[in-house]
Amino acid sequence: MGKILSEMFSAPILVRALIVGILVSLCAALLGVSLVLKRYSMIGDGLSHVGFGALAIAAVMNLAPMAVAIPVVILAAFLLLRLSSNSKIKGDSAIALISTGALAIGVMAVSMSHGVNIDLNSYLFGSIVSVSGGDVVISVILACAVLLMFVFFYTKIFAITFDESFAKATGINVNLYNMLIALLTAVTIVIGMRLMGSMLISSLIIFPALSSMRVFKSFKSVTICSAVVSVVTFVIGMIISYAADTPCGASIVCVNIAAFAGFFIAGAVVSRSK
């Protein structure tokens, strides 16, 4: 075990992936609590597909991937928020529409680009090789922004998550906070999807929050627990991925499945023993 860890820390690529991954897991888990409770979990999934489309087009047109993907996904996030609050097109179908549409456009772009070498597999299921030094910088800034937001506006985030109508009535600018959360979610997804893959990144948003909710009963404990669960499952997943030579995104999701099962059983035991 010690040997594996020291090997991992001596490879710069792995160290970069670990830093970015830990920070992204932390952000995804914190934002995830609010998104899951507001019934917006699928937004993460929709955005990752949009991110895939944007990355594919950027690669085909030989543009910097992040410079294209981040603004496109942020735009998509605002659009999805607006659609969810609009009763004419229901949120769930709007997300399915946008995510499959973006996926199709991405696949078309890749297939039409003769001579451009694009590894579709790493776009879809992630790879640690694609994490760049720039990603490290962005993820540090992102993590600071998310943590600051949760420390300073924690009470407001709670109010908005629990009851938007009441929050609006007390004079909180609910739209501003919703857009802030959408923006940070968009950036989290774009950074995280290089490592996790666009098919798997939304698991980082959903799993930790759902696992924590099995056992914990207050908003504060759920929030703290999902941050911890997210980072721990990420690190364990990375170690398994390195030791067993399995894809890192899938390994992390599998650890999350195990964690969810554990929390589910623990929750059932706790409520039965009452």
């Binding site: 409770l37 507001k38 019934r39 009470t155 407001k156 709670f158 109010a159 629990f162 009851d163 109508s165 009441f166 929050a167 009535a169 007390t170 004079g171 909180i172 909710m213 914990f216 009963k217 207050s218 908003f219 504060k220 404990s221 759920v222």
Partner: peptide, 29 residues
Amino acid sequence: KEIGYLPQQTSAQRDFPASVSEVVISGCL
């Protein structure tokens, strides 16, 4: 903004993990 508002409950709220004191104190916002 100092009207004490009791909105209609939403379905998402009914299984919300929050302690009673967390919910009540959010009225002070």
